[in-house]
Design a protein around this nucleic acid. Structure first.
Lengths: 195, 195
DNA sequence: GTCTATACCCCGATAGAC
DNA sequence: GTCTATCGGGGTATAGAC
């Protein structure tokens, strides 16, 4: 916060993104000023504009890279048993969400602050992720180990249920992640009619 | 918007709340100015302060009255079969949420913009609502018609799943409310191990 | 109860020196 | 790449007339 001159581009860029992510998630995009972000990074507000054209682009960048990280991290194997694939998805989604709580908050709270074009881009990426789960439900239905009334709604319902974890999870709380995964896998298995 | 004088307190108060709710839900609390609200109502910004001490109180008021309406609208009967009570809860929660989409959005997106004292108040009311569902799950477990690993988590998971409806529901879309209720009741029944 | 006017402050973004 | 300084605008809230 006290630095007065000097160039350190290699670390300033990532730092801006990290502090912006943290502040946007905690206080909301509209409530956070460029000056606040700059102050958290330890530069003056004007310096931010060497890294982002404007505040909107900064938000979109955070959301897009989060969605791309998420899609890249999910590894599915269509050859596996559908129930095993679903269990893997449940545990992956919870773990990834808890490892990136701020980014997950952002990507479902700040969609409305995106320009229409940026919104379409993020919504498309989100759709790809939903499709990944829906393919598992389809395989499970076709092989007869799952049974549900509406595949698309079940997809959306499961993701909403799983993502909800970030609203109450506390590090060092009553339940560890393995146990949380166990519990949600039980809920998901029942919801898709796999008992 | 064109009115230049005149007192109409009976309608201005509710109108301020309605427009604030709509604008906060669509654009976010921090992104909406008192001038915007006033303009939507058809008064000057200064006039708002005859109805609310400040912007924060306006937000808290909207959230509190929504939570009180929700709690007042839910009618449970502990004498009924636990599965029937759960089905009633599922359908009630979806219907109430869809009837008050803006308020529901507000009450889970704008909690972070409440002062600590106001936050505690709203969180307490939300806890009461969660307890209402948890009592049903407890009755179902004790009578043996339900079976789950963790009652509190199942409560939170079900509410997250049901509330998610507001994120994709569109009036006149592919599914009507009755059908949506049917589908989610199927998911919930499976999740609580009632098959 | 509502208006007009305004105090006071912070916003996003840019210009130009170093 | 970062700083200082600043432009133009809009924010919440209040004062005083009607």
């Amino acid at each position: 916060m006290a630095r007065t001159q000097g160039s350190r581009a290699e670390i300033t860029g990532p730092l801006i993104r990290a502090e912006a992510r943290r502040l946007f998630a905690r206080n909301g995009f509209a409530a956070v000023s460029m000056r606040q972000i700059a102050s958290a990074v330890g530069v003056q507000a004007g310096a931010l504009y060497a890294y982002t054209p404007d505040k909107q682009a900064l938000l979109h960048d955070l959301l897009e890279s989060h969605m791309r990280d998420l899609l890249a991290a999910w590894r599915d194997d269509p050859e596996m048993d559908p129930l095993d694939r679903l269990e893997a998805f449940v545990r992956f989604h919870i773990d990834f969400s808890l490892d990136h709580i701020d980014a997950v908050f952002l990507s479902y709270m700040e969609l409305r602050n995106l320009t229409p074009e940026n919104f379409r881009n993020i919504a498309g990426l989100r759709g790809s992720y939903e499709d990944a789960l829906e393919r598992i439900l389809q395989a499970g239905t076709e092989s007869g180990v799952m049974n549900m009334t509406d595949r698309r709604l079940t997809t959306l319902a499961l993701i909403a249920m799983l993502t909800g974890v970030i609203n109450w999870y506390r590090e060092g709380g009553r339940l560890d992640r393995q146990t949380i995964g166990d519990i949600y896998w039980g809920l998901a298995r029942g919801a898709v009619g796999a008992d």
